[in-house]
Amino acid sequence: MNNIINIETLIFTASIGLVVIGIYLVIAEKNLIKIIIGLNLADSGVNIFIVFSGYIKNKTAPIFSKGSLGFENMVDPLPQALVLTAIVIGFGVTALSLAIAIRLYKHYGTLDISKIRGLKW
């Protein structure tokens, strides 16, 4: 039992769970703000998965401070650098989408996407 419930299973479940919930919100929700929240959740889930891919058991943060134990005891630093970039990019997209949502609300008076259907076939 202890072999299944360990930190890796937990983090993997959390990341896949966030991605699944986020994409479900985008597909099935009608309110625009909830769709944007779903995108944000999916982004967070993927970022957790990227950091997880650099994890090595029982090792510590890759910072060479005064009391550090040398590079044999550190996790992989590259995925953390990738996640720094990915978080900022996700934040940029969310900010832009919220600005578009504000303008859409001004034009249509509602945030319900089934009513924002000016462009037809």
């Binding site: 991605v19 986020g22 994409i23 985008v26 625009l32 769709i35 995108l39 999916a42 982004d43 993927v46 990019i89 997209v93 832009l96 989408s97 578009i100 949502a101 303008r103 859409l104 034009h107 924002i116 259907r117 000016g118 462009l119």
Partner: peptide, 16 residues
């Protein structure tokens, strides 16, 4: 605005 919103949502899923 409507077109940009649709494009943004689908494109962001692609990025994920």
């Amino acid at each position: 605005l409507e077109a940009s919103m649709k494009y943004l949502i689908q494109g962001s899923i692609g990025s994920v």
